[in-house]
Amino acid sequence: MTPVEVVRGDGPLVLGLPHSGTWLPDDIAARLNDRGRRLADTDWHVDRLYDGLLPGASVVRATFHRYVIDANRPPSGETLYPGQNTTGLVPLTDFDGRPIWDAPPDAEEIKTRRQAFHTSYHAALEAEMKRVHARHGVAVLYDCHSIRSEIPFLFDGRLPDFNIGTNGGATCAPEFETAAREICTAAEGYATVVNGRFRGGWTTRHYGRPNEGWHAIQMELAQRTHLTAEAPPFAYDPARAARLRVVLGALLQRIEEIALSLGDTT
């Protein structure tokens, strides 16, 4: 199993999928406890949800599970949300704060995993961003995520359906954030927040360099928008997903239009 899948498109958008993978190398799987092997914190079916929504978009997808190593955390392991509960570079607990390992990895193993998986994913993502930027004079990373709506260990209450993150507007030109807010807010039956609990993970913050023509925006979807239930077996709901895909497709198309207007295609 290769740790990263890349689909190259000819447009200015790159879709990043760091958390939809479920592959566990055998030696790592054997060290998880029963709770860890449930893989409950997967971004379930996000790859299917976005599949084919924007012809020409590139896709960089991690095939490994976030319990191997979290590709959306700083390689240093520092927290992105000081003072709030979260999970680390290699999570020791699940999103409910429960241990997931019978034998947790030590510092040396984390270093090995970082090189084999985290570095591989970001090498592929950076290469794709460079390729797209060279072609269009602009590159936009749209980082695709989903999460359960209610996780008391991580946040109070119930998440909105669309959680848009730009780290307070620092990771992209304002036109992208405005478009995301307007399209999601106008979508009937959905709730939206910008830079709420999820302001953009390390990926968004690292690649969001608008002064260099690199823009990044994170979309954290509440899983109730496209699953039958936010509990095992975390099944894809075709009807809910079809309705959601209309909104996401419109958003991606608008982001592409903005990107092309900002880029230099001469």
Score class of each variant (00 low, 15 high):
Asp106Leu: 00
Trp214Cys: 07
Tyr81Leu: 12
Ala242Val: 04
Arg254Phe: 05
Thr203Trp: 04
Phe153Trp: 14
Gly16Trp: 01
Ala103Gln: 10
Gly56Glu: 07
Asp156His: 10
Ile183Lys: 09
Glu78Phe: 05
Leu39Ser: 10
Ala127Thr: 14
Gly11Lys: 13
Glu5Gly: 08
Trp44Lys: 05
Phe162Val: 09
Ala29Cys: 04
Asn33Lys: 01
Ser58Trp: 01
Glu78Thr: 06
Arg48Phe: 02
Val246Gln: 13
Glu128Leu: 06
Leu260Ala: 09
Asn85Glu: 13
Leu244Cys: 08
Ala139Gly: 03
Ile28Val: 15
Asn33Ser: 07
Gly196Lys: 03
Ala239Asp: 14
Arg181Asp: 12
Glu108Ala: 14
Glu177Gln: 12
Arg98Thr: 12
Glu5Phe: 09
Asn72Arg: 04
Arg73Ser: 10
Ala103His: 10
Ala170Tyr: 09
His45Ala: 06
Thr93Phe: 04
Ala250Thr: 09
Ala222Ile: 02
Gly52Ile: 05
Leu125Glu: 13
Ala250Arg: 09
Val140Gln: 01
Val4Asp: 11
Asp143Thr: 01
Ala62Met: 08
Asn33His: 01
His226Gln: 08
Val7Met: 10
Pro210Gln: 10
Glu109Ser: 01
Glu150Met: 11
Val132Cys: 01
His215Val: 03
Asp51Cys: 09
Tyr190Leu: 11
Ala134Asn: 00
Gln218Asp: 09
Glu257Leu: 12
Ile164Gln: 10
Ser20Asp: 11
Asp47Ser: 14
Ala242Trp: 09
Gly165Ile: 03
Asp102Ser: 14
Asp41Pro: 07
Ile147Asn: 03
Val132Ile: 01
His19Gly: 07
Ala173His: 15
Ala173Asn: 15
Leu141Asn: 00
Arg199Lys: 14
Ile69Met: 05
Asp41Gly: 15
Leu92Arg: 11
Leu248Gln: 02
Leu221His: 04
Asp102Cys: 08
Asp27Phe: 13
Gly97Met: 06
Ala229Leu: 03
Glu212Ser: 11
Leu17Ala: 00
Pro232Val: 02
His206Glu: 05
Ile100His: 01
Glu128Arg: 07
Val194Pro: 01
Ala216Leu: 05
Glu5Arg: 15
Glu182Arg: 13
Ser76Leu: 11
Pro238Tyr: 08
Ser76Cys: 07
Ala40Asp: 14
Ala40Val: 10
Ile28Gln: 03
Ala29Val: 03
Val138Ala: 12
His133Tyr: 08
Ile147His: 09
Thr86Arg: 10
Arg35Leu: 14
Val14Arg: 08
Gly16Pro: 05
Leu125Arg: 06
Gly36Thr: 00
Met219Lys: 05
Phe176Ser: 00
Ser120Asp: 06
